[in-house]
Design a binder for these strands. Structure first.
Lengths: 410, 410
DNA sequence: AGAAGTTACTTGTCAATCGAAAATAACCTA
DNA sequence: TAGGTTATTTTCGATTGACAAGTAACTTCT
């Protein structure tokens, strides 16, 4: 026999047939709730009887409940009975291990947060992860009244092994390299709760498409660009995280936007990150205030990106200049994304996104210098629309996706 | 009812259940032939009885035939009976409307070309398309002995509307704008044969993944970069053409590789295309020979890319320099593709690919100047492995994909 | 040559599920 | 309250794959 190229063939049988339809119906309920059975039948193309049976199965499992009725048509007739996802049937825990602090939350099936905790990072990763495990366990206990805990989604930064939950390179956390987060957490939690790991920027993208305005617009191809100490990004193609051949997709932070530019931490010259990361902005601001030491904020003050954004909003000229300059470079960096992937939307995250009204014009203008108008208008560019950190929402979506995702066919 | 976000829900019923399995089995036969029933059962996970029944249906439809037997296992036992796709059951016509000439071919289900014709383009698109329609019709007549003609796949260049088969901007064909190729061909052909259109670079990518060595390697994410008068590219993600939000994905030709670079035809500065297109290479070569008019080839001679590649292969210094320089710029241009999409492979097409041994080193080296070694090794870079123009094979794949492609689920 | 063992393929039966259509429920208007 | 309308449920039949019990074809050993 010739070499078998074992793609994940998933052949269909009755169970899968049922699963496909149930999944579609469940997703329709999730996205359209409240919604009636006929409406589901109309949207999905399933027969009404089939929808009824599927709903009955959902009732039996407690996945869906009925509440409220709609209005009759002008001609009269029975009122449609509204269906809802039972959000307390299952829940998810999301953890966002950020550069300086870690967020964790308990979420219901609708993505509503029932608990949100914040714990500071510490220098010793093992000690920190022990604390984190305790916090997670307290959420797990909280989750008990729920019928089911879908799992724990963890957002990691740096170079990671998402499969095993290993931080290969935790420089920006001050943790050194090869921290087996998955192994450590699993040993502390000691329960059979699934753990999922993924890169923060990718989870941000997932969070946006599950819970942000890109979801409302029905976008399926979205790039999230996260500006912080570095510049990371996550790509959603066809509604799913795109990983690339060796999990390397979305390293837009290191594309060269000007070969004559400054040296980047990666050793190359003119990377987007070298121009537009928060570090670069802070440096730029320092440079400017150094020239004019009469400035209201002394260069000795500890300056970070938050401060600069704050100052810029207050109208401080140097800060404003600094972030506007960052915005210009960022615009250049978006050009290859638009030309290459042509996503429906690019979502910008990080502190600079909090000053959106101040930078939007600059970003669009500089991007327009490198992208033709036709392309520029085909991709919407806007700041994150989520109220909590997008990667936390993504971590939750990662868990929920397990329940709502289609069983992969072909 | 809330706004219905009508994604293409494809719910499952018995017919789809059957179709999915048939498709999977058919694909396994196509990729593994010759192959026995047990082997199919093992690969797909279907029960042997189910496979038997599916094969029986294929026999009835004449899609598959049995020929030859395998060897018994060392322990003895019945010999497996080999199955093959019946390549003459169906066929496809592929058309590649290139910049200067047009290729068309009749292909069987295995992608073997049974006829290959070449016709020169003419200035009047309507006249040309009339001639083309005649040629297509003669292939259709040739196809008659086949049981079935799957369709006609047409590769177009320039800015196009793939859905309707319209060349929106046919500058590089000398045809002006808005040529309704689809409408015209349909009216001339007058038979109910499906016509499919797609951009040439995307079809090249599809051709490579269906018939090239990327197929053999089982790659699912591939970018094809086509260097000709311009620089186009096609993206395959998860085995399928990726279009982007407004069909704009893969415009890597206009990403900026050096803002201090020359002005591009698009009006921006430093586009890859301005550095690495055949036109740029020809200009570069002209420049070099002008400096040394003692050169063996006079600058008055009509020079095109083919000539330069030819000369370079013969060891002509200026030609060699010219294409090596192009290769260096090309390498820069591949960097954002690797960092952004991190595909398993980038396939280079066009005349410069014919001089691969002369340019490979340069491409990899310059790419390495902008990409970290880890990333560089994660993406293979090689020239097209097809023996005819990749976009012609892609046009054929476009038709075959209709038969072999999965019915889209979810 | 024949028996025993092995593997490939086929067929019969069963259970699951959907579609179609009929039945029922709930509502409106006149 | 009758008649019309719409929503939901139930019933029945068809299709299909899983499972298991055949049958076919081959090898090896005696």
């Amino acid at each position: 026999m010739k070499k078998i190229n074992l793609k994940a063939f998933k052949t269909a049988n009755h169970r899968i047939l049922r699963d496909i339809n149930e999944l579609i119906v469940l997703n329709v309920i999730r996205e359209q709730q409240p919604v009636s059975r006929v409406a589901i039948a109309e949207i999905t193309g399933l027969e009404e009887g089939t929808v009824s049976r599927i709903i009955q199965r959902f009732f039996r499992r407690g996945l869906v409940y009925e509440a409220g009725v709609g209005t009759s048509t002008p001609a009269g007739g029975r009122k449609p009975r509204y269906l809802h996802i039972n959000p307390t049937k299952s829940c998810a825990i999301g953890v966002d291990i950020g550069a300086i602090e870690t967020l964790l939350a308990l979420s219901d099936l609708n993505g509503h947060l029932h608990q949100l905790k914040k714990i500071p990072n510490t220098k010793d990763p093992r000690k920190f992860l022990a604390t984190l495990a305790d916090e997670i366990l307290s959420l797990v206990r909280l989750a008990n009244p729920y019928n089911e805990l879908g799992g724990i989604g963890v957002s990691l930064i740096g170079l990671i092994d998402a499969e095993e939950g290993i931080i290969l390179e935790g420089e920006n956390l001050g943790w050194g390299s090869y921290i087996e987060v998955g192994k450590i957490l699993k040993s502390k939690i000691k329960q059979d709760i699934p753990l999922y790991f993924e890169n923060g920027a990718r989870l941000s993208a997932l969070g946006e498409i599950w819970f942000g305005s890109t979801h409302l617009s029905g976008f399926r191809n979205v790039v999230f660009v996260d500006i912080n100490e570095g510049v990371g990004s996550g790509i959603i193609i066809n509604g799913q995280i795109y990983n690339g051949s060796r999990n390397g997709a979305g390293e837009f932070g290191h594309i060269c936007i000007d070969p004559a530019g400054p040296k980047c931490s990666c050793g190359k010259y003119g990377c987007l990150e070298a121009f537009a990361s928060d570090l670069a902005t802070v440096d730029r601001y320092r440079e400017k205030t150094k020239i004019k030491p009469s400035s209201s904020v002394s260069q000795n003050t500890k300056i970070d990106m938050s401060t600069i954004v704050e100052l810029a909003r207050e109208g401080h000229a140097h800060a404003l200049e600094a972030i506007k300059e960052t915005a210009r470079y960022l615009g250049f960096g978006l050009a290859p994304i638009i030309y290459g992937l042509n996503p429906e939307a690019i979502v910008i995250g990080g502190k600079i996104a909090e000053a959106w009204p101040l930078v939007e014009r600059e970003i669009l203008d500089s991007c327009g210098q490198r992208v033709s108008p036709l392309f520029l208008e085909s991709t919407k560019i806007f700041p994150s629309t989520l109220h909590v950190r997008p990667c936390l929402m993504g971590a939750i979506a990662l868990v929920l996706a397990q329940r709502f995702a289609a069983p992969e066919i072909v």
